[in-house]
Design a protein around this nucleic acid. Structure first.
Lengths: 336, 336
DNA sequence: CGCGCTTACGTCATCGCTAACGCCACATAC
DNA sequence: GTATGTGGCGTTAGCGATGACGTAAGCGCG
């Protein structure tokens, strides 16, 4: 059916190996032959069979990315940027989504490996232990994204979540707020680190973090939930109502704003709200949301660089834990 | 490196072919041998090499999906649902995004074919002619998604866009509005069909569609644009200001609401606004957006059924043009 | 007993491509 | 003149699986 190397070779009266060499830029082919091969290749629009190539060479020039959820703009944007970065360096990307199901994530890992990817990028939706176990036998270079596995020392690209938590909290402190709450969703390093940053900032300002100020909702990282609303309702019921809330992500923050307004409060006058992630839609809200930006594009690019570095045999070490700096994006929810 | 068929065969003292047969459920293997093979396979967590399998068999049990943009929730959700549907039927999905670049889309087509996908699903970002040309030489079954190529008669799954346009417009008419404008973005069948539906509904109500009521902005289908705002500004400048607007998609509608409010108008009292696509975020807006829902999940499932049907050799005909019915989702932007 | 049929394997030749040599002609060196 | 490259191309042997046969043993049966 499709055109094969040997068809081109036959047409030109050379051997298939020669054609293969030309295609892969080997130097031991005469200039004339090279030209003739390229011309014929273009004429017939030859496309090498990647299955055969991968099988024979043991390399596929392809890396796989598994994200927990493509509905989340962060991962979609990350994938886009990563792909562009890889492309520049001659690699292809295969994208897979685990749909927030650990079981599916494991399947996707196997699947990509069975397809012979040269490297694997993973933003896991498993617990740290499970993820560590899933990656235990993986033979190819593997880069973690967004969610780190600190104990494994595996290469990582993501936001500096501690700094992000600190930045958001310091911003609220800078507005003169003192009763600063935090809505979080435990489970991944991201949430834990942001919580750490939040605590650090409070303590540095001489404020003792209150347990009641931290509301923890599982599965908060998923789209479409009302967990942010519920968490906010809980906070508003406190006798000493918070005057500011740092939400672990923008979705929770959107729910929080919703709940605050519904309770008759003014945002930001009565209660300031800040999110993290800087979603596009943050701009379109009733009260546009102040948020911590995470340079998603830069992360994708860094991940591409890192991955290709690993593929070139560079040894990973401490310097492979890349955390991009958070940046504040001011909007109405924390002041004009 | 990885475990191979022949390793398992050697361990068990049988031939590789026998193991292969067990794995593929062939019947000419003894019950005992079968058990032993399965047990060993599980023990060593054997994963077949899909490259080799695909090369040898000419089938990959894999289909490819190319979308124009993963940042768009519709495609992300469609992909999710399609994947689930294919999985149920024993197929895998490879996902690719063209990032709204026709050139990239062509590359992705070649890429997926070179990977030996058994079928291709495409939501094109090319013009109809270019897309037709890109698919001309494709040898595998091919299903179009969201954007049809009417002239080619290729299998298609998507929204019934004419009906959607009609439904939205009829809703506005039902509210008593008469000066109903339409913000569109030409280029794909989706926009054209919705415009058709809009016109049909007006005419059916005895209203003559006005050219000035239709504002056309290119690239409106992309995320993050301000095209909706600009289009609305233009409409509001008309001497005979519209009292309702049907926007070809929700993003444009969000911009439109923004612009209307900024101009000091009340939504929906002064001007009703309806979108299409029913994005999740429509709920979180300042004025929650009435929208036409497109049953994205159902579409994904239909696409899976259709694709697998084609792979089983069923012949495509007129009945393969699957258009799901639109459904109105009422929110504040067109009345309480 | 010999025939055909079934059951349960195994052999062999690909699939399309690449890694690793091999080989030959010609040029250059000493 | 023999040794020593060195461009330029071909040969061979896989990569890890599968498809299409081949075949030996066991069975029933006229």
């Amino acid at each position: 059916m499709a055109i094969r190397l040997k068809d081109i070779a036959a047409d030109l009266g050379v051997s298939a190996v020669t054609v293969s060499k030309v295609l892969r830029g080997k130097t031991d082919v005469g200039e004339q032959t090279r030209q003739r091969v390229w011309q014929r290749v273009r004429e017939v629009k030859y496309q090498p069979n990647l299955l055969a190539r991968g099988l024979a060479s043991g390399k596929s020039q392809t890396v796989g990315l598994i994200v927990p959820n493509l509905m989340h703009p962060y991962f979609a944007e990350f994938a886009k940027s990563l792909k562009a970065g890889l492309r520049k360096r001659g690699y292809l990307l295969i994208l897979a989504s685990a749909e927030e199901e650990p079981e599916l994530e494991r399947e996707e890992i196997d699947n990509l490996l069975a397809r012979g990817v040269d490297a694997l990028l993973l933003a896991t939706c498993q617990t740290e232990d499970d993820a560590t176990a899933s990656l235990a036998g993986v033979q190819v270079p593997c880069v973690l994204v967004d969610r780190a596995l600190p104990d494994t020392g595996r290469p990582f690209v993501g936001l500096d979540d501690v700094a992000a938590g600190r930045l958001a909290t310091e911003h609220l402190l800078g507005l003169g707020r003192r009763r600063i709450a935090h809505i979080t969703g435990e489970g991944f390093s991201t949430a834990g680190d942001r919580l750490t940053g939040y605590r650090e900032a409070l303590i540095a300002s001489g404020i003792e973090p209150q347990a009641a100020w931290v509301v923890n909702r599982p599965r908060l990282e998923q789209a479409g939930d009302t967990a942010g609303v519920e968490a906010m309702v809980e906070l508003l019921a406190l006798t000493d109502r918070p005057d500011a809330v740092f939400c672990v992500n923008d979705l929770a923050a959107m729910g929080a704003i919703h709940a605050a307004l519904a309770a008759g409060l003014r945002v930001p006058e009565d209660i300031a709200i800040i999110g993290c992630g800087n979603l596009r839609q943050a701009d379109y809200l009733c009260v546009p949301l102040t948020s911590v930006d995470q340079s998603t594009e830069e992360q994708g690019d860094l991940a591409a660089t890192l991955t290709v570095g690993l593929l070139r045999g560079e040894e990973p070490g401490q310097e492979w834990q890349l955390r991009v700096a958070p940046a504040l994006v001011l909007r109405a929810s924390t002041g004009s």
